[in-house]
């Protein structure tokens, strides 16, 4: 699994770079973020949660059964909304209230 960063959307704030536990994300000479070591991504989604302009998506590698969907989160107050876009354009949203505990 890994992430992909939309260069055109990135505003170069560097927040994704700052949080990555594997130091995998770098800023290029135009100050746009890119993942330098895509095979080394742990899939923790820390970078995605930081991005103010929602430029980062994660996906499952084909070797672990990925089928092309992309995931990102958008935060609104206490709500962390998980948004999954499938290749056929279908979008599913799963909002989670961070003030609520897991049921399990």
């Amino acid at each position: 699994m890994s992430i992909t960063i939309d260069r055109n959307r990135c505003i170069g704030c560097g927040k994704c770079h700052d949080v990555c536990p594997g130091t995998l994300i770098k800023l290029d000479t135009d100050k746009r973020a890119y993942i330098k070591y895509p095979r080394d991504c742990w899939g923790c989604t820390s970078c995605i949660k930081e991005c103010p302009v929602y430029a980062i998506r994660f996906y499952l590698g084909a070797d672990i059964g990925g089928m092309g969907s992309l995931v990102h989160t958008e935060k609104n107050g206490d709500i962390l909304n998980w948004i999954i876009e499938s290749p056929d354009g279908k979008i599913s949203e799963i909002p989670i209230n961070q003030k609520e505990s897991n049921k399990y």
Binding site: M1, G43, F58, L60, G66, M67, V71, I96, N102, K103
Partner: peptide
């Protein structure tokens, strides 16, 4: 689905994708 998003989001993605 929600519990996994809070710790291992790839599993939720797997359920939804499949």
């Amino acid at each position: 689905i929600k519990a996994y998003l809070n710790m291992a989001p790839s599993q939720t993605l797997k359920w939804i994708e499949s």
